[in-house]
Design a protein around this nucleic acid. Structure first.
Lengths: 194, 194
DNA sequence: TAACTAAAAATGAACGTTCATTCTTTTTTT
DNA sequence: AAAAAAAGAATGAACGTTCATTTTTAGTTA
């Protein structure tokens, strides 16, 4: 009697191939056959790890989103001041989006198309809670404008996605000093003007 | 001898159907047959107006992008002050993204995936020139931070895309006062702090 | 340790379907 | 009546998925 022990490496290779191909060709031009080939696996093998193509991209999305938020919050704890905490989280996110831009691009594509099942996308949003809590604290302390979380996110975090994409497309080279400028713009947009 | 006079209505119906279906199902789940059905046209007829599917989405993209920028700049002229001009353009863009959100969603999807041919996407960017000129003027006058256009765009304009999408998904209801707050955040992020 | 075995894992080929596109014919226009 | 526009049916290729089979794995026996 053998044990259930499908290779985690193979699963990872499939997820990685999915990200790579979807990034470069889009979901519509990423057939299962190509994913299998890139992962060095038979097409049939994919179905041992995933129910179908939709399940494959759903799981890939959740996995990447989790990696993203884990990275964002791994050096933060709630005892930090609002300013310090925000700068720390913001810079971790910037770091992730620029260094792991394959992951970030994949998320951007998922978040701007109907390729992910809606319940899965909504689940992915929950991971941001620590940031929302930080903002709530900042508003109470009169440091952060009393705006909806969506607006705060739109100005403080989302611009990084745009910059990452232009960077990836080669249109624009982001340097360290640009990161500092971007951070300043982010903070200026949400901080209370004294 | 007949005149070449393909119906502009039919072409428009095809473009509209493309936007609608791509918005709701994604490019990967938008077959020509469905586009034809929604436009009340035979699949073969599409090929009288467009070379192929790629050409159809390319042309749709350019058309929507043109409509977008025309709307954005239609009330602006270069004799305006930087502050007034920026507020005017910004609010026109906000208007467009929220009122014509079918168009705006389609653009967001195109700009975040490889579904549009790269040369076509690049052509679409040129339409923003008046805004870049305004910023250049603002920088010279010391009103706008001396940042790269990409960073300015990321903070001043792009957040509207994020807000439009959350609004469209029903996650968040944007009111008039939110628009005013968002405008303030946009301006705060790019204006020089005195 | 070496041979055996049964279940799990993996495969390549095959299936039925769907797709983009084209072909042939009909309808409309002038 | 002639040419353009439009149509429906047809085509071949490509797709997601499944099937029948082989290979690998790991526990058991000798």
């Amino acid at each position: 009697m053998a044990k259930l022990q499908k290779s985690i490496d193979k699963r990872n290779a499939l997820v990685k191939a999915t990200i790579d191909l979807v990034n470069n060709n889009g979901f519509h031009a990423t057939p299962m056959s190509k994913i299998a080939k890139m992962a060095q696996v038979s097409p049939a093998t994919i179905y041992l790890y995933f129910e179908n193509k939709q399940d494959l991209v759903n799981q890939t999305y959740i996995e990447v989103k989790t990696e993203y938020t884990n990275y964002a919050f791994s050096t933060y704890d709630e005892s930090m001041s609002v300013e310090v905490g925000f700068e720390l989280i913001w810079k971790r996110i910037a770091d992730f989006k620029l260094k792991e831009c394959e992951y970030a691009m994949f998320l951007a594509q998922c978040d701007n198309t109907p390729m992910i099942d809606e319940p899965i996308r909504i689940e992915g949003i929950k991971h941001l809670q620590p940031l929302l809590d930080l903002w709530s604290r900042g508003k109470k302390e009169g440091l952060i404008k009393p705006l909806s979380d969506y607006i705060l996110y739109a100005y403080a975090i989302n611009p990084l996605s745009f910059l990452m994409i232009t960077q990836k497309r080669g249109t624009f080279q982001l340097s360290e000093s640009h990161i500092e400028e971007a951070y300043q713009a982010a903070w200026d947009s949400i901080k209370v003007n004294k």
